[in-house]
Design a protein around this nucleic acid. Structure first.
Length: 226
DNA sequence: TTCAGGATGTACT
DNA sequence: GTACATCCTGAAC
C-alpha cells in the first residue's frame, strides 16, 4: 500500500535555524494523476539567495510516459532530456520551451516509470517583493492591473518569478532549495489569510493538440472559487 | 477584451 | 529542418 504523504509522513530538515516540514519522496511515488490533484493547495517553496519564496499551487497537469502521447517520454522514449523522468520520484524536471521559457515538473512514480506533474499556476504567498522584481523588474506596488492579473498564472511565468531555469533541472524536492509543504508555516513562513471556499476542477491539458487521443485526457486540475 | 504574430534555443528526426 | 507542455505586445473592437 502506497502512502499519500500526509502530515504523518513529512520530513523535518534543520537548516540555518529553520525547521522545514517538507513533503517526502513517497508523496511523489504515487500515481501521477492523483498526485497532480493532491498537489493543489500545497505550497511550493524556493530558496533564492537565502530568502524563501513561496506560492500556493493552483493548477497542475499530469504526464504519463507509458500511455500519453503528450509526455516527452511517451512509449518509454529515453533521451538525454527525458532521462530524469526514468529515475526516482521527487526530483524537479525543468526544460526550455519555445526558446525562452522554462517549465517546472515534479518527477513521479517508481524508477523506470517516466511520469511527471507540470506546475502551471501559483498564487504568491511569500517573498512578493523578490518575485515581482524577478518577474517584471519592478516593486509590487508598481505592478499594473494587467501584470497583477497575470503574475504567476502560467508555467513559464512562475519559473521566471521563482528564478527557475533549465540549470535547476534535477533539483531534489526533498532538499532545502526547492520543496513543497502543506502550509507556509511548515517552512517557518507566515500563513496568509485562507482563500475563499474552492472546488477542484478538471479538464483537457493546454497546448498539446498534436497528441492525438491523449489531448482529451482530463489530466489538468485547477482550483476555482466555489 | 480578444486576437494575431513574433521572439527564441534546444531536442529530436 | 521542424516542432515545441509559452508569453508579450500592439492593434482592433
Amino acid at each position: 500500500m502506497k502512502s499519500c504523504g500526509g502530515a504523518a509522513h513529512r520530513v523535518l530538515v534543520y537548516h540555518w535555524g529553520d525547521f522545514l516540514a517538507i513533503l517526502p519522496r513517497e508523496f511523489y511515488r504515487n500515481d501521477t494523476v492523483g498526485t497532480a490533484r493532491r498537489l493543489l493547495g500545497k505550497y511550493l517553496v524556493r530558496r533564492y539567495q537565502g530568502e524563501l519564496l513561496a506560492g500556493r499551487i493552483t493548477e497542475t497537469e499530469a504526464y504519463v510516459g507509458r500511455c500519453d502521447k503528450a509526455c516527452h517520454a511517451y512509449g518509454y522514449r529515453k533521451t538525454a532530456r527525458t532521462a530524469i523522468l526514468f529515475g526516482e520520484p521527487g526530483y524537479a524536471y525543468l526544460y526550455l520551451i519555445y526558446g525562452m521559457y522554462c517549465c517546472l515538473n515534479f518527477v513521479t512514480e517508481d524508477a523506470g516509470e517516466p511520469a511527471a506533474v507540470l506546475i502551471r499556476s501559483l498564487s504568491p504567498a511569500a517573498g512578493l517583493e523578490t518575485i515581482s522584481r524577478l518577474r517584471f523588474g519592478v516593486r509590487p506596488e508598481e505592478l499594473t492591473p494587467y501584470r497583477k492579473k497575470n503574475f504567476l498564472n502560467g508555467p513559464g511565468k512562475l519559473c521566471k518569478g521563482f528564478s527557475l531555469t533549465a540549470r535547476d533541472n534535477g533539483l531534489d524536492l526533498t532538499g532545502d532549495q526547492l520543496f513543497v509543504c502543506d502550509s507556509p508555516a511548515d517552512a517557518g513562513l507566515p500563513v496568509p489569510p485562507l482563500p475563499p471556499a474552492e472546488r477542484i476542477c478538471e479538464g483537457r491539458r493546454i497546448g498539446i493538440d498534436y497528441a492525438e487521443e491523449a489531448r482529451d485526457f482530463p489530466w489538468r486540475f485547477w482550483l476555482e472559487e466555489a
